Simulated assay, not measured.
Amino acid sequence: MDAAVLKKVALFEGLTQGQLAKVAQIGHSRTYPAGAFLFREGETGQEMFVIAEGKVRISKSVPGIGEEALAILEPGQYFGEMAVIEDSPRSADAIAHVSCSVWVIERSRLDQLMFTDKDLAYVLLWTFVRTLSERLRETNEKIKGFFALSRF
């Protein structure tokens, strides 16, 4: 993925051209057919993903109900970033909703880049914080909705 495309990804929009060029060097492309798992809930993760083409469904398996789709992500969106921040298992499944091409960033390569470029690390980490905060807020709203429905 080149720097011009990366600039359009919310995670990287605060980076300079030079920093974008560095990020472009650490990732690689991967494709998945429709229905393929990019990762499963509970697995250990060491990579994050940016969607280049297609769509990816983030979902959880709910006992007695089946798959509950949490989000359908489109080109330019990123996911799996918790795996590059912490060592916890994946919190959901990521499934190719349609055939897709993703750009993969390995934790070790991102760690190395952030260690050598503190300004880049600062921008990325604050963007991660905002993303995780937004997702937590959305989850809280879904939980409120669930409890409101369960009272009937």
Results as ranks from 00 to 15, higher is better:
139 T>H: 10
117 D>H: 08
92 A>C: 09
109 R>F: 12
132 L>W: 12
152 F>W: 03
130 R>C: 13
103 W>I: 06
69 A>S: 15
50 V>Y: 04
81 E>T: 04
89 P>R: 07
146 F>S: 12
140 N>D: 15
146 F>H: 09
78 Y>L: 06
152 F>V: 08
46 Q>Y: 13
9 V>Q: 00
62 V>T: 09
50 V>W: 06
43 E>V: 14
31 T>Q: 11
64 G>I: 11
2 D>C: 01
84 V>G: 02
38 L>F: 00
28 H>R: 14
150 S>K: 11
91 S>G: 08
22 K>E: 06
145 G>P: 10
44 T>I: 13
145 G>N: 11
44 T>A: 14
12 F>R: 01
2 D>K: 08
36 A>T: 10
81 E>L: 06
116 T>F: 11
93 D>K: 04
92 A>S: 13
95 I>Q: 04
2 D>R: 05
18 G>A: 11
21 A>W: 02
87 D>G: 15
28 H>Q: 10
147 F>H: 12
133 S>M: 11
128 F>S: 07
40 R>I: 06
91 S>K: 06
36 A>Q: 10
43 E>H: 12
87 D>F: 10
1 M>A: 07
48 M>D: 09
107 R>N: 10
149 L>H: 14
71 A>G: 06
3 A>P: 01
86 E>A: 14
10 A>V: 04
87 D>P: 11
60 K>V: 14
21 A>C: 07
133 S>A: 15
62 V>I: 13
133 S>G: 15
71 A>E: 06
46 Q>E: 15
95 I>F: 03
94 A>Y: 05
17 Q>I: 02
36 A>C: 07
152 F>Y: 02
6 L>R: 01
138 E>M: 15
22 K>R: 06
92 A>Y: 03
96 A>Y: 00
44 T>C: 09
12 F>H: 05
90 R>P: 13
73 L>W: 00
58 I>Y: 01
57 R>W: 01
45 G>F: 09
86 E>N: 13
92 A>E: 00
87 D>R: 13
147 F>K: 10
